[in-house]
Computed example of a mutant assay.
Amino acid sequence: MIDLHLIGVGTGNPDHLTRQAAVAMNAADLILLPRKGDAASDLIDLRRTLCATALTRSVRIVEFDLPVRAATGDYLAAVGDWHDAIAAAWATQIARHLPDGGRLALLVWGDPSLYDSTLRIADRLRTGGMAMRVHVVPGITSLQALTAAHAIPLNALGAPVVITTGRRLREGGWPIAADNVAVMLDGDCAFTTLPPAEIAIWWGAYLGMTHEALIAGPLADVAARIVAQRAALRARHGWIMDTYLLQRAGVAA
Results as ranks from 00 to 15, higher is better:
1 M>F: 11
3 D>F: 02
5 H>V: 14
6 L>F: 01
7 I>P: 00
7 I>S: 02
8 G>R: 01
8 G>F: 01
14 P>K: 12
15 D>G: 06
16 H>L: 11
17 L>C: 04
18 T>R: 01
19 R>C: 13
20 Q>K: 13
21 A>I: 01
22 A>V: 14
23 V>T: 12
25 M>Y: 08
26 N>M: 06
28 A>T: 05
29 D>P: 05
34 P>Y: 02
37 G>L: 04
38 D>W: 09
39 A>W: 04
39 A>R: 06
40 A>Q: 12
43 L>W: 08
44 I>G: 07
48 R>C: 12
49 T>L: 13
51 C>F: 01
52 A>G: 13
52 A>K: 14
52 A>I: 00
52 A>C: 12
55 L>C: 10
61 I>S: 03
62 V>G: 04
62 V>E: 11
63 E>M: 03
63 E>P: 00
64 F>M: 10
65 D>I: 04
73 G>H: 07
74 D>C: 09
76 L>F: 06
78 A>Y: 07
79 V>S: 13
80 G>N: 13
80 G>M: 10
80 G>F: 02
81 D>F: 10
82 W>L: 11
84 D>W: 07
89 A>I: 05
92 T>C: 08
93 Q>I: 03
94 I>N: 04
97 H>Q: 11
104 L>V: 08
106 L>R: 03
107 L>G: 02
109 W>E: 02
110 G>W: 01
111 D>M: 01
111 D>F: 01
115 Y>P: 00
116 D>V: 01
118 T>E: 03
120 R>I: 05
121 I>M: 05
122 A>T: 07
122 A>L: 06
126 R>Y: 00
126 R>H: 09
127 T>Q: 11
128 G>F: 06
128 G>M: 03
129 G>C: 03
130 M>E: 10
137 V>N: 05
142 S>T: 09
142 S>N: 02
143 L>Y: 01
143 L>F: 08
146 L>C: 02
149 A>P: 07
150 H>T: 07
151 A>F: 09
153 P>G: 07
153 P>M: 07
153 P>E: 06
155 N>T: 15
155 N>D: 14
155 N>Y: 03
156 A>G: 15
156 A>Q: 12
157 L>D: 13
157 L>Q: 14
157 L>I: 13
159 A>T: 11
160 P>W: 02
160 P>H: 06
162 V>H: 13
163 I>M: 15
164 T>F: 11
169 L>M: 03
171 E>D: 15
172 G>W: 13
175 P>N: 08
175 P>I: 09
181 V>A: 04
181 V>W: 02
182 A>H: 04
186 D>A: 08
190 A>P: 02
191 F>C: 08
191 F>A: 06
192 T>C: 12
193 T>L: 14
194 L>G: 00
197 A>N: 13
201 I>S: 08
202 W>K: 09
203 W>H: 13
209 M>G: 12
209 M>R: 15
210 T>P: 10
210 T>L: 14
210 T>F: 11
213 A>I: 11
214 L>C: 09
218 P>L: 09
221 D>F: 05
222 V>C: 13
222 V>H: 08
223 A>D: 10
223 A>K: 10
224 A>M: 10
230 R>A: 05
232 A>D: 15
236 R>H: 15
239 W>Q: 11
241 M>N: 05
242 D>H: 13
246 L>E: 03
249 A>H: 14
251 V>R: 14
253 A>T: 15
